[in-house]
């Protein structure tokens, strides 16, 4: 299978501090790939580095095109939706406006309206609350809004950063169900960074383990699920 997104020797810096130390990563098209690892392992930084939010060394290919060194907004315009950790909601704008912003780069108005219906279908609560200020939503609702905003881009690649963080288990299940549907019915490639290994392993096809800014191991999800040693030492369940 062709690598839709590929990173070779990826290094990332915050100021002078090196956070990623030569990471190699390959995300197959149309699949869900998960980055697992403890807090501080470098998962978030990896996602941020992939879309130009940190200083980067190494090569990043997206759909065969070099994207390292491009500004974030240009990478987004290539169809990469990044749902950041902490959701990045526009708290003072309404839910509807948040969703419209998700489709900011698109000019096909009719299809945008269609997609609006589509995300309302995935997350009905957003439709109910479309005129309220996004900052007033609950944590789970804000997470849904963030994912929905990402979908409004009609992305080819969806980067999800810790979507389960701070959510009740039932919300986590609902969210991951939505992610699976999005992946299966629309063929959106997903790269997911998660601490919640069991939830991620359920939905992912392929898994990488990240530790202190390096890839420790990787492989098909079912293999990792079956490997007790790895499960105990890295996934902690």
């Amino acid at each position: 299978m062709r690598a839709f997104l590929e990173a070779n020797g990826l290094e990332a810096y915050y100021g002078w501090t090196k956070v990623l130390h030569g990471l190699d990563l390959s995300v197959p098209e149309g699949k869900v790939t998960a980055l697992l690892g403890a807090n501080g392992a470098g998962k978030t930084t990896t996602l941020r580095a992939l879309c130009g939010m940190t200083t980067v060394k190494g090569q990043i290919f997206y759909d065969g095109q070099r994207i390292d060194g491009k500004p974030t907004e240009e990478i987004v315009r290539l169809g990469v939706a990044h749902v950041p950790e902490g959701r990045g909601t526009f708290a003072n704008l309404t839910v509807f406006e948040n969703l419209l912003l998700g489709a900011y780069t698109r000019s096909d108005r009719a299809k945008v309206a269609e997609d609006l219906d589509r995300v309302y279908h995935y997350f009905p609560v957003l439709k109910e609350r479309r005129t309220s200020q996004a900052g007033l939503l609950s944590g789970g609702e804000q997470q849904m809004l963030a994912v929905a905003r990402g979908l409004m881009l009609r992305p080819r690649l969806l980067l999800l950063d810790e979507p389960s963080l701070g959510l009740a288990p039932i919300m986590v299940a609902e969210l991951f169900r939505a992610v699976r549907t999005i992946n299966q019915t629309e063929g959106v490639t997903v790269l997911l960074a998660e601490q919640n290994a069991s939830a991620a392993l359920d939905v992912a096809h392929h898994v990488y383990l990240v530790e202190t800014g390096r890839i420790v191991t990787g492989g098909p999800a079912e293999v990792l699920r079956g490997d007790d040693a790895i499960r105990r030492s890295y996934l902690g369940y």
């Binding site: 939010m53 907004e73 987004v76 939706a81 704008l93 419209l100 998700g102 900011y104």
Partner: peptide
């Protein structure tokens, strides 16, 4: 207007604005 909304978004959260493709 779309542009006006984008400008409000930038005031509100420049990082997220980049993430939806706004040229901040």
């Amino acid at each position: 207007t779309r542009l006006g909304l984008a400008m409000r978004a930038v005031v509100e959260n420049p990082v997220s604005s980049r993430l939806v493709g706004i040229r901040v």
